[in-house]
């Protein structure tokens, strides 16, 4: 494990922000940190980035407790991110890069590479307040990754970007993953979770309620809905082992969505249909992460 938190507890005056939160993030993977607003994600990130200290529990990096100098190995892009409005873009990026432990020469060299990559060289001497929100996001993204950290934490990285730039950022994330970096992604955008994340943890009401590989979780949360495409134009079977959800004619076929009753195996259900109709195709619906999220959070409530 690259990063682990063990039974992390954080208590604020009137509420418990984190209650024995343990997560494990394997090296070189993208880890989705999910949860409704106010669940405690930001607090957990702040503890991992050593901005605040936990009341109890610990954070392990490569198996040993994290140390003060580990902040230089972490790149953190907060959800609420800003820049000094009156500063020039280049100076600001230099400042943030040096704060993250780079020497002046290294910071300048890396900045040149990134500014070229993002095609923002012409902004170098512009004041931050002259930039659009999307442009500022690019500068912030650069200052998060400039010091080539091993662990990257992005809180809602795609908000504020247009689809083109969001795609650039997404490709950067994948490129960094290829390089063996470990990435924690906190987002409400479930499509990007499915596209990018290997593992997730869902935090709800200060506790981890769901954790594991994305595929496993989706499989586990199968609601037992099957799709059949049958040849022919009629389907009127009724049976206690399933309920019919929808029936749509499609050219010379008919499309069915069927919910399997509890205690019935998939095979029994398939046999039931296969024996009576000519089946063209058949599969089981995997839930989207969106479904899993809503299902888990509303069930808990």
């Amino acid at each position: 494990m690259y990063l682990e938190t063990k039974d992390v507890v954080k208590q604020y005056a009137n509420h418990l922000a984190l209650n024995k939160v343990s997560i494990s993030v394997p090296q070189g993977t993208v880890f989705g940190l999910l949860g409704p607003n106010g669940a405690g994600k930001t607090t957990l990130i702040r503890i991992i980035t050593r901005i605040t200290a936990p009341d109890s529990g610990e954070v392990l990096l490569e198996g040993r407790p994290s140390r003060a100098e580990d902040v230089y190995r972490i790149g953190y892009l907060p959800e609420e991110r800003g820049l000094y409005k009156k500063m020039k873009v280049g100076e600001q990026a230099m400042y943030l890069a040096q704060l993250r432990g780079l020497s002046k020469q290294d910071a300048h060299r890396e900045l040149m590479i990134w500014f070229k990559r993002f095609d923002i060289m012409s902004w170098y001497n512009r004041k931050v307040e002259e930039l659009s929100k999307g442009m500022q996001q690019k500068v912030q993204f650069i200052s998060t990754v400039i010091h080539n950290p091993d662990l990257l934490i992005f809180d809602e990285p795609f908000s504020g970007f247009d689809p083109v730039n969001a795609d650039i950022v997404k490709n950067e994330l994948l490129r960094m993953k290829e390089e063996g970096k470990t990435i924690i992604l906190s987002t409400h955008n479930m499509e990007s979770v499915e596209a990018l994340c290997d593992n997730i943890a869902l935090i709800h009401k200060s506790e981890v309620v769901l954790q594991g590989r994305v595929f496993d979780i989706r499989k586990e949360h199968r609601p037992g809905i099957f799709r059949f495409r049958l040849y022919g134009n009629g389907f009127d079977l009724e049976h206690p082992s399933f309920t019919l959800l929808s029936k749509e004619p499609y050219h010379e076929f008919i499309d069915l969505r069927i919910r399997k009753a509890d205690g019935v195996s998939s095979n029994e259900l398939a046999k039931l249909i296969f024996d009576r109709y000519e089946v063209v195709s058949y599969d089981e619906e995997l839930p989207t992460m969106n479904d899993v999220f809503i299902h888990t959070v509303t069930k808990e409530a």
């Binding site: 980035t49 901005i51 902040v71 972490i74 907060p78 800003g82 000094y84 409005k85 704060l99």
Partner: peptide, 18 residues
């Protein structure tokens, strides 16, 4: 106030102790 309002402080505290 400026740092807090522009939210740069969130970025700052991840590399500088408050």
């Amino acid at each position: 106030l400026e740092e807090k309002k522009t939210r740069i402080v969130e970025v700052m505290v991840s590399s500088v102790k408050p």
